[in-house]
Design a protein around this nucleic acid. Structure first.
Lengths: 107, 107
DNA sequence: CCTTGATACATAGCGTTGCTAGGTATATTA
DNA sequence: TAATATACCTAGCAACGCTATGTATCAAGG
Protein backbone atom coordinates (compact mmCIF):
# COMPACT_ATOMS: atom_id res chain seq x y z
CA UNK A 1 0.00 0.00 0.00
CA UNK A 2 1.37 3.37 -1.11
CA UNK A 3 2.68 5.80 1.50
CA UNK A 4 0.08 8.26 2.60
CA UNK A 5 -2.94 6.62 1.02
CA UNK A 6 -4.48 5.78 4.36
CA UNK A 7 -4.41 9.34 5.58
CA UNK A 8 -7.88 10.48 6.49
CA UNK A 9 -9.45 7.03 6.09
CA UNK A 10 -8.07 5.27 9.11
CA UNK A 11 -11.02 5.97 11.39
CA UNK A 12 -13.44 4.65 8.80
CA UNK A 13 -11.47 1.43 8.49
CA UNK A 14 -11.15 0.88 12.21
CA UNK A 15 -14.81 1.62 12.93
CA UNK A 16 -15.91 -0.66 10.10
CA UNK A 17 -13.61 -3.46 11.21
CA UNK A 18 -14.88 -3.28 14.77
CA UNK A 19 -18.51 -3.09 13.66
CA UNK A 20 -17.95 -6.24 11.58
CA UNK A 21 -16.47 -8.04 14.55
CA UNK A 22 -15.72 -6.60 17.97
CA UNK A 23 -12.10 -7.45 18.66
CA UNK A 24 -8.89 -6.46 20.39
CA UNK A 25 -6.28 -4.33 18.66
CA UNK A 26 -4.02 -7.07 17.48
CA UNK A 27 -6.96 -8.97 15.98
CA UNK A 28 -8.27 -5.82 14.33
CA UNK A 29 -4.96 -5.52 12.51
CA UNK A 30 -5.28 -9.15 11.42
CA UNK A 31 -8.88 -8.69 10.30
CA UNK A 32 -7.99 -5.65 8.24
CA UNK A 33 -5.20 -7.56 6.56
CA UNK A 34 -7.50 -10.44 5.71
CA UNK A 35 -10.49 -8.42 4.58
CA UNK A 36 -8.31 -6.27 2.36
CA UNK A 37 -6.71 -9.18 0.61
CA UNK A 38 -3.41 -8.45 2.31
CA UNK A 39 -3.25 -4.85 1.16
CA UNK A 40 -3.90 -3.22 4.51
CA UNK A 41 -0.92 -3.89 6.74
CA UNK A 42 -1.33 -1.38 9.51
CA UNK A 43 1.53 -1.10 12.00
CA UNK A 44 0.69 -1.24 15.70
CA UNK A 45 2.01 2.28 16.14
CA UNK A 46 -0.76 3.39 13.84
CA UNK A 47 -3.60 1.33 15.21
CA UNK A 48 -3.23 1.51 18.99
CA UNK A 49 -3.09 5.29 19.26
CA UNK A 50 -6.00 5.53 16.83
CA UNK A 51 -8.12 3.16 18.90
CA UNK A 52 -7.38 5.22 22.00
CA UNK A 53 -8.37 8.37 20.18
CA UNK A 54 -11.61 6.81 18.98
CA UNK A 55 -12.43 5.67 22.48
CA UNK A 56 -11.70 9.11 23.92
CA UNK A 57 -14.00 10.51 21.26
CA UNK A 58 -16.75 8.16 22.44
CA UNK A 59 -16.95 6.24 19.16
CA UNK A 60 -15.55 3.02 20.59
CA UNK A 61 -15.67 1.48 24.02
CA UNK A 62 -13.35 -1.19 25.38
CA UNK A 63 -13.09 -3.73 28.14
CA UNK A 64 -10.12 -5.72 29.36
CA UNK A 65 -10.16 -9.49 29.28
CA UNK A 66 -7.67 -12.32 29.47
CA UNK A 67 -7.04 -15.09 26.97
CA UNK A 68 -4.34 -17.76 27.35
CA UNK A 69 -2.42 -15.75 29.87
CA UNK A 70 -2.35 -12.57 27.80
CA UNK A 71 -4.44 -9.52 28.51
CA UNK A 72 -6.54 -8.08 25.73
CA UNK A 73 -8.46 -4.91 25.28
CA UNK A 74 -11.54 -5.68 23.24
CA UNK A 75 -13.34 -2.90 21.42
CA UNK A 76 -16.86 -2.43 20.20
CA UNK A 77 -18.60 0.43 18.44
CA UNK A 78 -20.82 2.76 20.45
CA UNK A 79 -24.10 4.25 19.30
CA UNK A 80 -22.36 7.49 18.44
CA UNK A 81 -19.66 5.48 16.72
CA UNK A 82 -22.24 3.84 14.50
CA UNK A 83 -23.66 7.19 13.49
CA UNK A 84 -20.19 8.52 12.78
CA UNK A 85 -19.31 5.40 10.83
CA UNK A 86 -22.34 5.78 8.61
CA UNK A 87 -21.40 9.40 7.95
CA UNK A 88 -17.84 8.45 7.10
CA UNK A 89 -19.04 5.69 4.84
CA UNK A 90 -21.08 8.26 3.00
CA UNK A 91 -18.01 10.52 2.77
CA UNK A 92 -15.93 7.65 1.44
CA UNK A 93 -18.45 6.91 -1.30
CA UNK A 94 -18.45 10.55 -2.31
CA UNK A 95 -14.70 10.79 -2.32
CA UNK A 96 -14.36 7.53 -4.18
CA UNK A 97 -16.86 8.60 -6.82
CA UNK A 98 -15.09 11.94 -7.13
CA UNK A 99 -11.76 10.26 -7.81
CA UNK A 100 -13.32 7.84 -10.26
CA UNK A 101 -14.95 10.78 -12.01
CA UNK A 102 -11.56 12.39 -12.52
CA UNK A 103 -9.90 9.14 -13.62
CA UNK A 104 -12.60 8.26 -16.13
CA UNK A 105 -12.28 11.54 -17.94
CA UNK A 106 -8.56 11.08 -18.37
CA UNK A 107 -8.23 7.57 -19.80
CA UNK B 1 -15.20 16.79 1.23
CA UNK B 2 -14.03 15.57 4.63
CA UNK B 3 -10.80 16.91 6.13
CA UNK B 4 -7.84 14.73 5.33
CA UNK B 5 -9.46 12.53 2.72
CA UNK B 6 -7.29 13.90 -0.06
CA UNK B 7 -4.05 13.08 1.71
CA UNK B 8 -1.94 10.84 -0.44
CA UNK B 9 -4.19 11.07 -3.48
CA UNK B 10 -3.48 14.60 -4.62
CA UNK B 11 -0.79 13.72 -7.14
CA UNK B 12 -3.03 11.13 -8.73
CA UNK B 13 -5.82 13.65 -9.13
CA UNK B 14 -3.60 16.36 -10.55
CA UNK B 15 -1.83 14.05 -12.98
CA UNK B 16 -5.14 12.59 -14.14
CA UNK B 17 -6.72 16.02 -14.55
CA UNK B 18 -3.80 17.27 -16.62
CA UNK B 19 -3.72 14.11 -18.72
CA UNK B 20 -7.41 14.58 -19.46
CA UNK B 21 -6.83 18.15 -20.53
CA UNK B 22 -3.58 20.11 -20.33
CA UNK B 23 -4.44 23.30 -18.52
CA UNK B 24 -3.21 26.06 -16.23
CA UNK B 25 -3.56 25.81 -12.47
CA UNK B 26 -6.70 27.80 -12.07
CA UNK B 27 -8.42 25.77 -14.78
CA UNK B 28 -7.20 22.51 -13.26
CA UNK B 29 -8.99 23.46 -10.06
CA UNK B 30 -12.14 24.17 -12.07
CA UNK B 31 -11.87 20.90 -13.98
CA UNK B 32 -11.47 18.90 -10.79
CA UNK B 33 -14.51 20.58 -9.33
CA UNK B 34 -16.58 19.80 -12.42
CA UNK B 35 -15.40 16.24 -12.97
CA UNK B 36 -15.99 15.40 -9.31
CA UNK B 37 -19.51 16.69 -9.29
CA UNK B 38 -18.52 19.58 -7.08
CA UNK B 39 -16.94 17.41 -4.40
CA UNK B 40 -13.33 18.30 -5.07
CA UNK B 41 -12.83 21.92 -4.13
CA UNK B 42 -9.08 22.23 -3.90
CA UNK B 43 -7.71 25.51 -2.55
CA UNK B 44 -5.01 27.26 -4.56
CA UNK B 45 -2.58 26.89 -1.68
CA UNK B 46 -2.90 23.15 -2.18
CA UNK B 47 -2.73 23.01 -5.94
CA UNK B 48 -0.01 25.47 -6.90
CA UNK B 49 2.71 24.07 -4.64
CA UNK B 50 1.74 20.56 -5.73
CA UNK B 51 2.05 21.45 -9.40
CA UNK B 52 5.49 22.91 -8.75
CA UNK B 53 6.51 19.78 -6.91
CA UNK B 54 5.29 17.57 -9.74
CA UNK B 55 7.17 19.66 -12.26
CA UNK B 56 10.35 19.50 -10.19
CA UNK B 57 9.87 15.75 -10.07
CA UNK B 58 9.70 15.68 -13.86
CA UNK B 59 6.14 14.39 -14.00
CA UNK B 60 4.68 17.60 -15.42
CA UNK B 61 6.12 20.28 -17.64
CA UNK B 62 4.81 23.81 -18.05
CA UNK B 63 4.99 26.79 -20.37
CA UNK B 64 3.88 30.36 -19.85
CA UNK B 65 1.29 31.94 -22.08
CA UNK B 66 -0.97 34.94 -22.06
CA UNK B 67 -4.76 35.04 -22.38
CA UNK B 68 -6.83 38.22 -22.19
CA UNK B 69 -4.08 40.17 -20.46
CA UNK B 70 -3.42 37.57 -17.81
CA UNK B 71 -0.44 35.27 -17.73
CA UNK B 72 -1.00 31.57 -17.41
CA UNK B 73 1.22 28.63 -16.72
CA UNK B 74 -0.10 25.69 -18.69
CA UNK B 75 0.85 22.18 -17.66
CA UNK B 76 1.03 18.88 -19.47
CA UNK B 77 2.06 15.40 -18.38
CA UNK B 78 5.53 14.13 -19.31
CA UNK B 79 6.38 10.60 -20.36
CA UNK B 80 7.58 9.81 -16.86
CA UNK B 81 4.45 11.45 -15.52
CA UNK B 82 2.32 9.09 -17.56
CA UNK B 83 4.14 6.07 -16.21
CA UNK B 84 3.81 7.36 -12.67
CA UNK B 85 0.14 8.13 -13.21
CA UNK B 86 -0.55 4.59 -14.36
CA UNK B 87 1.21 3.24 -11.29
CA UNK B 88 -0.77 5.51 -9.00
CA UNK B 89 -4.00 4.54 -10.72
CA UNK B 90 -3.16 0.95 -9.96
CA UNK B 91 -2.45 1.86 -6.35
CA UNK B 92 -5.75 3.70 -6.11
CA UNK B 93 -7.68 0.67 -7.39
CA UNK B 94 -5.97 -1.53 -4.85
CA UNK B 95 -6.60 0.86 -2.00
CA UNK B 96 -10.19 1.39 -3.06
CA UNK B 97 -10.84 -2.35 -3.28
CA UNK B 98 -9.21 -2.82 0.11
CA UNK B 99 -11.50 -0.26 1.72
CA UNK B 100 -14.55 -1.74 0.01
CA UNK B 101 -13.53 -5.15 1.24
CA UNK B 102 -13.53 -3.89 4.80
CA UNK B 103 -16.82 -2.03 4.40
CA UNK B 104 -18.62 -4.96 2.84
CA UNK B 105 -17.83 -7.26 5.70
CA UNK B 106 -19.23 -4.82 8.22
CA UNK B 107 -22.66 -3.97 6.81
C1' DC C 1 17.02 -24.46 29.34
C1' DC C 2 17.13 -20.87 26.36
C1' DT C 3 16.34 -18.54 22.35
C1' DT C 4 13.26 -17.22 18.76
C1' DG C 5 8.84 -15.92 17.05
C1' DA C 6 4.11 -14.94 17.67
C1' DT C 7 0.78 -12.64 20.46
C1' DA C 8 -0.52 -8.34 22.82
C1' DC C 9 -0.11 -3.92 24.61
C1' DA C 10 1.86 1.08 24.84
C1' DT C 11 3.90 5.83 23.52
C1' DA C 12 7.42 9.59 22.35
C1' DG C 13 8.83 12.01 18.65
C1' DC C 14 9.51 12.50 13.66
C1' DG C 15 8.33 13.64 8.85
C1' DT C 16 5.16 14.39 5.28
C1' DT C 17 1.94 17.13 3.29
C1' DG C 18 -2.28 19.72 2.54
C1' DC C 19 -4.21 24.01 4.05
C1' DT C 20 -4.69 28.77 5.99
C1' DA C 21 -3.55 33.21 5.39
C1' DG C 22 -1.45 36.48 3.19
C1' DG C 23 0.30 38.83 -0.98
C1' DT C 24 0.51 40.60 -6.27
C1' DA C 25 -1.80 41.75 -10.59
C1' DT C 26 -5.30 42.29 -14.48
C1' DA C 27 -10.06 42.31 -16.51
C1' DT C 28 -14.93 42.72 -15.92
C1' DT C 29 -19.17 44.12 -13.83
C1' DA C 30 -22.03 47.00 -10.71
C1' DT D 1 -14.71 53.00 -8.09
C1' DA D 2 -15.63 49.19 -5.64
C1' DA D 3 -16.30 44.46 -5.93
C1' DT D 4 -15.76 40.04 -8.18
C1' DA D 5 -13.48 36.76 -11.01
C1' DT D 6 -9.36 35.30 -13.01
C1' DA D 7 -4.53 33.97 -12.21
C1' DC D 8 -0.39 33.42 -9.91
C1' DC D 9 2.71 32.76 -5.55
C1' DT D 10 4.70 31.23 -0.73
C1' DA D 11 5.69 30.97 4.45
C1' DG D 12 4.45 28.62 8.18
C1' DC D 13 1.14 25.77 10.65
C1' DA D 14 -1.28 21.62 12.08
C1' DA D 15 -2.78 17.07 11.61
C1' DC D 16 -1.71 12.51 11.77
C1' DG D 17 0.25 8.09 10.55
C1' DC D 18 4.63 5.77 11.22
C1' DT D 19 9.22 4.44 13.13
C1' DA D 20 11.48 3.00 16.91
C1' DT D 21 11.46 1.29 21.18
C1' DG D 22 9.84 -0.76 25.29
C1' DT D 23 7.16 -4.30 28.27
C1' DA D 24 5.14 -8.96 28.92
C1' DT D 25 3.36 -13.84 28.05
C1' DC D 26 3.28 -18.27 25.57
C1' DA D 27 4.74 -21.92 22.24
C1' DA D 28 8.16 -24.22 19.65
C1' DG D 29 12.81 -25.64 18.49
C1' DG D 30 17.42 -26.55 19.29
Amino acid sequence: MRGEALRGHLDLLLLAAVRARPAHGYAIIENLRLRSGGNLNLPEGTVYPALHRLERAGLLKSRWSEASGRRRRTYEVTERGLTELRAQEQDWREFSRAVEGVLEGST
